[in-house]
Structure formats: structure tokens, C-alpha cells
């Protein structure tokens, strides 16, 4: 945390190396979060790029008040995602198959999903059936790998509320996936 504070301070003073270091340490996670939220690789790339360009332009407005820099960065990303989803809310959904396939395990078989009956596209589609708040928590928690405290800070909610959304989101996913599996069987 101290190191990041120092890096942010240097970046605010125009130190490009410090900013480059911050960029490298957050880039992949921001991309993963955005990609899971928007479900389209090209759009995720555009949004991720925009997030960091905005960060460059506005880093001087960041004030260190115990909130991690990552939370500030993810707030920018979240706002960009929300804007993008609003814009295309009435447009047809883009196929999720544009995202890469699920990683293959060392045994050469895809990692098992729920009851071995759903694949990664189904899972991503299931995530999109959750409420906005649940999707937000699931994306920030599992793709960006943030802690409950960080997610709470980004979403402006209490930690208890985020835990509850996480709980409800996982139960809902389980239910959606089980239902999908039953439908396929039938």
C-alpha cells in the first residue's frame, strides 16, 4: 500500500515511469472486469483503453484518503461500463463466443463446470441474467479479484451488503445453470 501511495504521488507529479508501473499492475484486471461486464472483446478493449486515458487526464484529482488507487481506477471503469451498457441497452446482444474459450486443465480436458453440463459461454450468459448489482459484485470479485472491502468502496455500499449480493448472485447462478442443464436433458 505504501509503495502504491508513493507511485501514485510520483505519477501525480508527472513521473511517467511511476504511472507506467501503475498501468502495468492494473491493466489485465481492468480488462478482465470490463470484458466480463460487456461480453465483447473489441468493446472491452476500447473501454479499457479509455479507462487508462481518463486516468492519465485526471490522476491529479485523486486524493489518498485510505481508498486504494485500484478502487479509484475501477470506479472509472465501472462508469465507463455503465455508460456503454446504457448506450447499447436497446441494441441486439453481441455473441459471447467472441470471448476466448475456457482454459484447458493439465489433463487436457476443460475444467468441469456445474455438474459438467454447462460450458463457459453458458456461464457467462448466466452471469448476464443476474441483477446489475449482482453482476457488478461477481465481476469485481471474480474477474478483477478484488476484496470485499474494495468492491464495497467502488460500489459505495457496505461490506455486509456486498457479501449479501455475492451470496445471492452465486445462488442465482447455481439455479440458472441447474435449470439450463435440466432443460438440455429434457
Amino acid at each position: 500500500m505504501q509503495d502504491e501511495q508513493n507511485l501514485v504521488h510520483r505519477a501525480q507529479q508527472g513521473d511517467q515511469e511511476a504511472f507506467a508501473e501503475l498501468y502495468e499492475s492494473h491493466f489485465d484486471r481492468i480488462f478482465r472486469y470490463v470484458a466480463l461486464r460487456v461480453g465483447n472483446r473489441m468493446e472491452a478493449e476500447d473501454i479499457t483503453q479509455e479507462v487508462f486515458l481518463k486516468a492519465v487526464r485526471s490522476i491529479r484529482s485523486f486524493k489518498w484518503k485510505g481508498i486504494p488507487f485500484s478502487a479509484w481506477l475501477f470506479r472509472i471503469a465501472r462508469n465507463e461500463v455503465i455508460d456503454s451498457l446504457r448506450k447499447k441497452s436497446r441494441q441486439p446482444t453481441v455473441p459471447l463466443s467472441e470471448l476466448p474459450p475456457i482454459p484447458v486443465s493439465s489433463s487436457g480436458n476443460p475444467h468441469p463446470l456445474v455438474k459438467h453440463e454447462v460450458d463457459v459461454d453458458q456461464l457467462r450468459a448466466a452471469i448476464r441474467q443476474l441483477t446489475e448489482a449482482q453482476q457488478e459484485v461477481i465481476s469485481l470479485r471474480f474477474s478483477a479479484e478484488l476484496s470485499i472491502a474494495e468492491v464495497a468502496s467502488i460500489m459505495g455500499k457496505s461490506e455486509g451488503a456486498v457479501k449479501s449480493l455475492q451470496h445471492g448472485g452465486i445462488i442465482a447462478l447455481r439455479r440458472i445453470l441447474s435449470k439450463g442443464g435440466d432443460n438440455e436433458k429434457g
Binding site: 478482465r32 479499457t48 456445474v114 456461464l123 461477481i138 471474480f142 447462478l173
Partner: peptide
């Protein structure tokens, strides 16, 4: 289910 979600979230640029 949570572990599966994490695997599905492994989207690399």
C-alpha cells in the same frame, strides 16, 4: 459454482 465463475472470468487481453 464460485470456482467455475472464476474460471469463466479468466479473459486475458
Amino acid at each position: 459454482t464460485a470456482l467455475d465463475v472464476r474460471k469463466a472470468s479468466a479473459i486475458e487481453p
